[in-house]
Write a protein that binds this DNA or RNA. Structure first.
Lengths: 146, 146
DNA sequence: ATACCTGCAAAGTATTTGCACGAAA
DNA sequence: TTTCGTGCAAATACTTTGCAGGTAT
């Protein structure tokens, strides 16, 4: 998704379809998420939103981001110890390069693997030290329990 | 690494090489990590170790796991909201399948991707809904600052 | 002997929740 | 009008830290 406006409208219509009240706070948070391409954390979203809504609570940011996350309109990039990052302008699963020092996160396109690492280093200038590749789903036992 | 005993000795000798005091607590925790293939969390390690060391503190488990993690002898599988999982019997990076319901984690071997998802579902019986693929390292800006 | 490690309890973080009020539908 | 969302503050969960005493080298 390259068009933030369109993405914003899409999120709003999906919220409406799910019978969520379109409060000014929710709208503002959705807008930030649709527009941001730097994978902001909750605190960052909070700060951005507070330039327009100085009285908005941090709890409201948590709550609304979680709403959109469970709808599948926001991707959570989780980290141990918190400070999770969120992405709303693009929700198809895709790899990320994460700088361990400045915590910058950039989107990558899928491809090989190992081979992949080399091309990432070539294309981005990153020095890759580790990667993380997890698959989420239901194991056989749980699939059989509904 | 298929041999827990050997892996245990390896961790101990690396700890010794780094001038760590081989306290009974550290040895016990290293043993659990070398032997466990179920990616235990801190609480689980704590409980396993406490059958032999009932007076051991949870803080000690945290501290010693972190020591081995920074040495590169323990792999941390981090999750948002805590409850991170640890793996000491194998430290080469490799993909995992994580059950979102029972939190079971199993090791996988590397291969394609997309194609990969299908073969994982075939081989394990998992129903994969998402995957996670992150690369960690230093971005160009940070590489230039040392 | 002495530097490092431990247990305990307290302090931190990040996130979630209860509640009374206020606003969207 | 009625239901749901908000702000605030307190609670929770996980992890880290300060300190006094103990132990591996």
């Amino acid at each position: 998704m390259r068009n933030p406006e369109k993405r914003f409208e899409q999120i709003l219509s999906r919220l409406k379809a799910k019978k969520h009240k379109l409060t000014p706070q929710l709208i503002a948070i959705a807008k930030i998420l649709a527009e941001s391409d730097d994978h902001p954390d909750i605190e960052t979203i909070y700060n951005r939103v507070r330039t327009d809504f100085p009285r908005m609570s941090l709890a409201t940011v948590y709550r609304n981001v979680m709403v959109m996350k469970s709808m599948g309109d926001v991707l959570e990039i989780g980290f141990p110890g918190g400070g999770n990052r969120y992405e709303g302008n693009r929700v198809d699963p895709h790899p990320h390069a994460v700088c361990e020092r400045c915590r910058k996160i950039i989107d990558l396109e899928t491809g090989g693997m190992a081979e992949f690492v080399k091309s990432i280093e070539r294309d981005t200038g990153f020095a890759i030290t580790k990667h993380r590749l997890d698959f989420f789903g239901l194991c056989p036992d749980c699939r059989n329990r509904q």
